[in-house]
């Protein structure tokens, strides 16, 4: 191929880098090769057949806000729809449904993710925390308190996602400066523009040094 026209690797580069042309088992490939053959066989069968009958619904077991849930869901159901429609946990919001706004942010195994782009079946066996799971009984989570104290919202639609993201932002260690907070909260859009107060709330929690 002509490197000028296709913007592909020029030939002489190949010579400079003979490593490209040799093929060696990498550590990760070795790991696969070492999987017990019975296991591999079982897995192949699992992939290849038997699933036709569950085309419609599949079992889903997950822990939501500390409670084990055993559900039956369509493979196409997103975690957001399952939370809202099957479990009546309507705190997580559907702002855009396409990963663009952050209103549906929840934690899976402690990490913030977008529930609108997560297939429910892929959460099987995992722990989900939603905004409903943050408070301890009547005692609000420090981040919830801080959002109230600093007026971190107007209409409130983006707020559950903002708070879930804010908690993760502090836990991840990405709340050390206003600039860092803004960058690491950029996945949560607020149509009312409550950003300055959201940043203040997060700074307050971070500086307070409370466990979040």
């Amino acid at each position: 191929m002509d490197s000028k026209n296709h913007n592909t690797t020029p030939k002489e580069d190949e010579k400079e880098n003979p490593r490209r042309t040799f093929l060696k088992q990498t550590s990760l490939l070795t790991a696969i090769a070492m999987a017990p053959s019975a296991l591999v066989k079982a897995a192949e069968n699992h992939v290849d057949d038997k699933i036709a009958d569950v085309f419609e619904k599949m079992p889903l077991k997950m822990e939501v806000n500390g409670q084990l849930q055993s559900l039956s869901v369509e493979p196409r159901a997103t975690l957001l729809d399952i939370l809202r429609e099957q479990l009546d946990l309507t705190g997580s919001k559907k702002g855009c449904d396409y990963g663009q706004c952050g209103a549906c942010t929840v934690h899976i195994d402690g990490q913030r993710v977008l529930s609108c782009l997560t297939l429910g079946v892929m959460v099987n066996g995992k722990k989900v925390t939603t905004i409903e799971g943050l408070a301890k009984g009547d005692q609000l989570h420090p981040m919830q308190e801080a959002f109230i104290k600093h007026d971190g919202f107007q209409c409130g639609y983006c707020t559950p996602g903002q708070i879930m993201s804010a908690v993760a932002c502090v836990r991840e260690g990405h709340a050390d400066s206003e600039a860092e907070i803004r960058e690491f909260m950029s996945g949560n859009i607020c149509r009312c523009g409550a950003y300055p107060n959201i940043v203040k709330a997060i700074q307050d929690v971070k500086e307070g040094g409370l466990t979040v």
Binding site: L39, A43, H46, V47, I51, V54, E56, P75, R76
Partner: peptide
């Protein structure tokens, strides 16, 4: 659209599954 969902157990299993048209990795 409805679709079938399977969990891969091995790389070879994925390659086998992909031989069937209409199959995609997620």
């Amino acid at each position: 659209k409805q679709f079938e969902y399977v969990k891969a157990g091995s790389t070879q299993g994925v390659i086998n599954a992909l031989a069937q048209p209409g199959t995609k990795i997620i």
